[in-house]
């Protein structure tokens, strides 16, 4: 492992749960923090409720957009059943963040679960400052659901 290895995150869930939004927000926040960022995703059939996963990598230099097997620092699962198919991507000492660790009743809306999980992840990523997260959230959501998602993000942060 070279010393400049990027931080590797995999976000996994089912179509419609906000996997793409969650990983887009993460990539955007890292990009705003001045890091080199790449993000890979698979579209298509995934829209119909099937498994979806996104790879987000950031650091000094990122080459492949895909996280090599066994090199994910974080695996974020938005659906408990999606842990098993993605477990192999996680480092032996990698961190699993599962939606089952989240108090869903505390969320302003279950739809904001993906943003809450991002909040949970943010606590582990000191290279990305709070303003970058907030700017990414503000840019991603229209007025109507912005406050709700910021609340969910904060709940996820305190849940970590």
């Amino acid at each position: 492992m070279n010393r400049e290895a990027p931080v590797n995150v995999i976000v996994a869930g089912l179509g419609g749960q906000g996997v793409l939004t969650c990983s887009d927000l993460l990539a955007d926040a890292a990009f705003r923090a001045g890091l080199s960022v790449k993000k890979a995703e698979i579209h298509g059939m995934s829209q119909r409720g099937g498994s979806v996963s996104c790879d987000v990598r950031f650091g000094a230099e990122v080459l492949s957009p895909m996280v090599p097997d066994g090199e994910a620092d974080f695996l974020v699962v938005l659906e408990p059943t999606q842990e098993a198919p993605n477990r192999h991507s996680l480092k032996p000492d990698g961190v699993l963040l599962s939606v089952s660790d989240l108090d869903m009743d505390a969320l302003p809306s279950k739809k904001a679960m993906n943003t809450a999980m991002l909040g949970m992840l943010s606590r582990h990523l000191p290279d990305i400052e709070e303003t970058c997260w907030q700017d990414a959230l503000n840019a991603a959501f229209p007025d109507k659901i912005r406050a709700m998602n910021r609340d969910a993000f904060a709940i996820g942060q305190s849940n970590a």
Binding site: S46, R48, G49, G50, S51, S53, A84, P85, R87
Partner: peptide
């Protein structure tokens, strides 16, 4: 690998 969930008609 354990298989993922296949897509389905909505």
């Amino acid at each position: 690998r354990p298989p993922g969930k296949p897509p389905q008609l909505c």
